[in-house]
Design a binder for these strands. Structure first.
Lengths: 237, 237
DNA sequence: GGCAATTTGTACGTATGTATA
DNA sequence: GTATACATACGTACAAATTGC
């Protein structure tokens, strides 16, 4: 087992098992090994195994009952909005179809978030969006720089400006989706200026308190990414 | 501690602590009691406490480090889409403002889900929507019946028909939001027929594979609920 | 660097519940 | 039905690691 610094034993085991479960390494029929077997396998105490099991159960991946052992829960019960679960999923199946589902979610969340930001965001919130946009422009002007981080900050700051905790809570989800998305939709450093301009239109709409316009601009932005992905899916066939 | 059947010790403690944390019963500065104190307080072993702590940590509510003790994480780190966390939140602060945030999320998710259902839902998926609609109509015709359950089933079946795991994953969130919403927006048994008709329009659009129309009809439906809530918020001032 | 406090990890024993013979 | 076997649930006790003073 790869020892990860700064993580205690049960967290490391949680990571290992979580990854393995989502990768489908355990037959749904036969279930997981018993606690005792896991102890042997990882060379750790039962306490550590039990704590890892509890963490995975809290994330909806497994359930354990006496005599029945530890069982993998159906995938529909998994907490997909848990950061760890999300990471394990992308590690195991980075398929285009998952990416499309990601984008469909972004298409639901982000335009609405932009509209809410235009309506409810404080001046300070909007300033943070402006800051992120500045960083994007700097990166676009510099051929060596990457605007990846600034892009993430831009979208996150809009979620925050929505002043709705449920939208902001999805920041890790959106960041993850966006990161994977960028790797597929930005083939080269050619169109950075265009991308930055599209983002600027969203910011302007929010600054001018135009919710509908902000929503439409965001929809347009994500739709562009969707077009890329759908083309790739078709091309792969 | 209220003993709940069918839940093991650590899960019961998890519930108690989770509720208390979200209710803000622990000072963010001083943090939580130590493991030993919790053992005394609940009269249980450290094993049970530790497992509860691990479950709460998995949900993002707390973190525990040597010498620092158990600390409440900032609310922005809480896993709001975890069913338990959601339940604890509603138990502690059932305010109108939270309800409005709920509706803003529904406004983002459900219209998009309806559009996806119209585009990708299988015939069987759509049949399930029809079944739920039938139940709603029956309840609307019967003055003694409640269409609450059928209403929940209708919205859930659309999430399922979206054929996107991230949308369907939000079923508990939507159901919870809808349940609370119904209690505030349906003052009496007067308008059930009208409600059923609005739902029927969504179904028809999905059946006829009209994504945009399905989206618009769903937006209209949720907007009606939003109007109720905003009126109540203003009225309370 | 050493000391004290506290969490973390380990070991083992008993209890309880459930499936199978 | 009943008994038995087995796996998890729960508890106590102790050793180790980490941190703050």
């Amino acid at each position: 087992m790869a020892r990860i610094e700064n993580l205690n034993l049960s967290q490391q085991v949680t990571n290992e098992l979580g990854r393995a479960i989502i990768a489908g390494e355990f037959n749904a029929e036969s279930g997981l090994p018993t606690e005792a077997q896991l102890c042997d396998e990882y060379g750790i105490s039962r306490t550590a195994v039990r704590e890892a099991v509890k963490m995975l159960a809290a994330k909806g991946l497994i359930s354990s009952r006496p005599r029945q052992g530890i069982r993998v829960e159906p995938a529909s019960n998994w907490n997909l909005y848990d950061t760890s679960v999300l990471k394990w999923m992308l590690d195991s199946s980075p398929s285009m179809l998952v990416l499309k589902e990601f984008l469909q979610m972004r298409m639901a969340i982000e335009p609405q978030a932009a509209a809410l930001a235009a309506e409810y965001g404080t001046d300070e919130d909007i300033q943070h969006i402006a800051d992120a946009l500045d960083e994007m422009n700097k990166a676009a002007a510099d051929p060596k720089a990457s605007m990846h981080e600034a892009d993430l900050a831009f979208h996150t700051s809009i979620l925050f400006a929505s002043r709705n905790r449920f939208f902001f809570q999805l920041r890790d989800f959106i960041r993850t989706a966006l990161s994977v998305s960028i790797q597929h939709t930005t083939p080269a450093k050619g169109n950075d200026m265009g991308v930055a301009e599209d983002h600027a239109k969203i910011y302007t709409a929010i600054l001018n308190r135009q919710p509908e316009r902000a929503k439409n601009m965001m929809t347009y932005l994500i739709d562009e990414a969707m077009t890329f992905i759908e083309a790739e899916i078709k091309g792969a066939k």
